[in-house]
Amino acid sequence: MYDPTRLAALVAVAEAGSITRAAERLGYTTPALSQQLAKLEREAGTALLVRHHRGARLTGAGELLVARARRVLDELERARHELARLTGLTGGTLRLGTFQTAGIHLLPPALSAFRRAHPDVELTVADYEPSAGVAAVAAGDVDLALTHTYTPGGPLPLPSSVGAEPILVEELVLVSAPGHALTSGTSRLPLAELAGQPLISMAPDAPARRDVEALLARAGATPSVRVPTPGYLLVCALASAGLGVGVVPEMVARTSVTPVGVRALEGGGLRRTISVAYRSDEMSPAAEAFRALLRGTFGRAQQS
Score class of each variant (00 low, 15 high):
25 R>K: 14
172 L>I: 00
58 L>V: 10
187 S>C: 09
187 S>P: 01
69 A>Q: 05
49 L>W: 01
78 R>P: 03
237 A>N: 12
60 G>L: 08
74 D>E: 15
107 L>D: 01
74 D>V: 09
79 A>C: 07
288 E>D: 11
226 R>Y: 07
243 L>Q: 15
113 A>D: 12
145 A>N: 04
81 H>C: 09
278 Y>V: 04
293 L>V: 14
206 A>H: 14
279 R>A: 14
60 G>V: 13
42 R>M: 13
79 A>M: 08
194 L>I: 12
17 G>F: 04
280 S>V: 13
96 L>K: 05
134 V>W: 02
267 G>N: 08
80 R>G: 07
137 V>T: 03
88 G>A: 04
79 A>Q: 14
74 D>T: 11
187 S>A: 15
296 G>S: 06
97 G>E: 02
241 A>N: 11
173 V>A: 07
113 A>L: 14
242 G>C: 12
292 A>P: 12
27 G>R: 02
260 V>P: 00
17 G>R: 05
184 S>V: 04
77 E>D: 14
179 G>R: 08
260 V>I: 13
204 P>L: 05
21 R>V: 09
295 R>V: 08
100 Q>D: 11
83 L>H: 12
216 L>E: 05
250 E>V: 08
136 A>M: 12
115 R>A: 13
247 V>C: 09
254 R>D: 00
90 T>L: 05
177 A>G: 13
122 E>W: 05
256 S>L: 11
4 P>D: 08
215 L>Y: 05
4 P>C: 02
3 D>H: 13
124 T>C: 06
28 Y>F: 15
168 L>C: 01
294 L>N: 06
167 I>R: 02
213 E>F: 10
220 G>H: 08
28 Y>M: 09
246 G>V: 04
